[in-house]
Design a protein around this nucleic acid. Structure first.
Length: 279
DNA sequence: ATAGCGCCCTGGTGGC
DNA sequence: TGCCACCAGGGCGCTA
């Protein structure tokens, strides 16, 4: 399940390898992932353009395509969300597409950017700037926790306007961008805050601690190339090297106190925490 | 307005 | 050993 660190790792890998490459051809195997855009329209908007920028917003990957013919033609953005099982891989053009292949973008260097998705929940669309601004998840996206000026006060301001367990709030992309199930559990563990605590009742000391934990964990995970718990791999097919401290470790000993980590369901999500350390 | 739930999908798992 | 029911899960859209 790609979250901020995984999408950021993917972004960095792509940035190193696809900038200035021209897209020469497009093949759509599973039109469903275009979310209503016709394969013809997708193709018309993408073929012939070159890759100008690779950006990330929350868990979205945004690839800016420059007009190659005229400097006045508007930019197009590949708006990509991998959801649970999506993968984006750079492969040789001669390699046959693997299982669960959805879309291939051929480039002018004998390489292809391939989108795979076992569950076909992921999305890839070619959008104009104005259309991008209408994408629901994007226009409602919350603050980026790795931005330099993001801190406990900013987090507290968002949390106090909402009710419910703090973990459920951390998962809300309109409140905070990019945190998913893995890093919500990891951050709450590092901050020693119980996932079921009501978010609006956290003290300023606690929100400050939580914000620091979120930044620490996300930065650590980015530096490890993300977490591979299911099928995440980067653009070169490499697994992430981050080792979660609590996520998927229910029943195992807490790294701080040795007490068995507890697994519960919270807001429909599997949640692991230390009943001793997290209050 | 907002919270809660169903839906999308398929590999892996546990029970018989 | 084989089969099958069931589970996981991000984000959207619908309902109350």
């Amino acid at each position: 399940m790609p979250e901020l660190p995984e999408v950021e790792t993917l972004r960095r890998g792509l940035e190193q390898q696809v900038l200035e490459r021209r897209i020469t051809d497009v093949f759509v195997a599973i039109p469903k992932v275009l979310k209503g855009q016709s394969p013809q329209d997708f193709r018309d908007r993408v073929v012939g353009r070159s890759i100008q920028r690779v950006d990330r917003r929350g868990k979205y990957l945004l690839i800016r395509l420059a007009a190659s013919t005229s400097p006045f033609s508007p930019s197009v953005f590949l708006c990509i969300h991998l959801k649970m099982r999506g993968q984006l891989l750079l492969e040789n053009a001669t390699a046959a597409p693997g299982k669960y292949h959805c879309i291939t973008l051929a480039m002018d260097n004998q390489r292809v950017l391939r989108f795979y998705d076992m569950w076909t929940w992921g999305e890839m669309r070619a959008l104009l700037e104005a259309e991008l601004a209408q994408v629901r998840g994007l226009c409602r996206m919350g603050e980026e926790p790795l931005e330099a000026d993001w801190d406990g006060a900013r987090l507290a301001a968002r949390l106090k306007r909402r009710r419910g367990p703090v973990k459920a709030l951390l998962l809300d992309q309109s409140l905070l961008a990019g945190v998913g199930n893995i890093y919500a559990d990891e951050s709450l563990f590092m901050a020693k805050i119980h996932p079921e605590r009501n978010g609006s009742t956290l003290t300023s000391e606690e929100t400050s601690r939580l914000a620091q934990a979120i930044r620490f964990v996300l930065q650590e995970a980015v530096s490890c190339g993300g977490t591979t718990s299911d099928n995440y791999v980067d653009a070169d097919g490499q697994a992430g090297r981050y080792t979660p401290r609590v996520y998927e470790r229910g029943g195992a000993p807490c790294l701080f106190c040795g007490v068995a980590l507890q697994r519960i369901r919270l807001g429909g999500r599997g949640t692991v925490f230390c009943p001793q350390c997290q209050r």
